[in-house]
């Protein structure tokens, strides 16, 4: 009986997305070193993600932003930022989706969720979809 439960639990666990794709893990690996573990940013050098007005204002652009980075001046919560943000060519479309959904739902953010298909579509604007 116990063995059966254990086997069932293992099966359920292996069905869930692997840790590698997990939004929190992706954020910690690819974003936290600049944007902070709580999305707080760094003074006027790096913008926050927590309660950032930039996110809802640029919903359709965010997948390309993550894929390609940017080198332009932007305004977030009334403050201007101009530092270079590197892109992430190594992430799959689904990883970008998980990453975005993590940011959209943390630190007081209540942004809309993205679907994978939606992200792949939006990445077309910057030729950034890998179809995965």
């Amino acid at each position: 009986m116990g063995v059966g439960l254990l086997a069932a639990a293992t099966a359920v666990y292996s069905c869930s997305p692997s840790r590698r794709h997990d939004g929190a893990q992706l954020y910690a690996t690819h974003c936290a070193s600049c944007h902070g573990t709580q999305g707080e940013g760094l003074r006027r050098l790096i913008p926050p993600l927590a309660k950032s007005d930039y996110l809802p204002a640029n919903y359709a652009y965010l997948p390309c932003l993550i894929r390609k980075g940017q080198r332009q001046s932007i305004v977030v919560n009334g403050i201007e930022y101009n530092q270079y943000m590197p892109g992430n060519e190594g992430l799959t479309d689904s990883e970008i989706t998980n990453l975005l959904n993590y940011v959209q739902q943390h630190w007081g953010n209540q942004g809309d969720a993205y679907t994978m298909r939606e992200v792949s579509g939006l990445l077309g604007a910057c030729n950034g979809s890998d179809g995965q």
Binding site: S33, C34, G36, L42, L45, I46, Q83, Y84, P86
Partner: peptide
């Protein structure tokens, strides 16, 4: 360096 993408922000903070 100012355009450093990985360790610099954490280091400078």
């Amino acid at each position: 360096f100012a355009t450093c993408p990985d360790i610099c922000p954490k280091m400078q903070s």
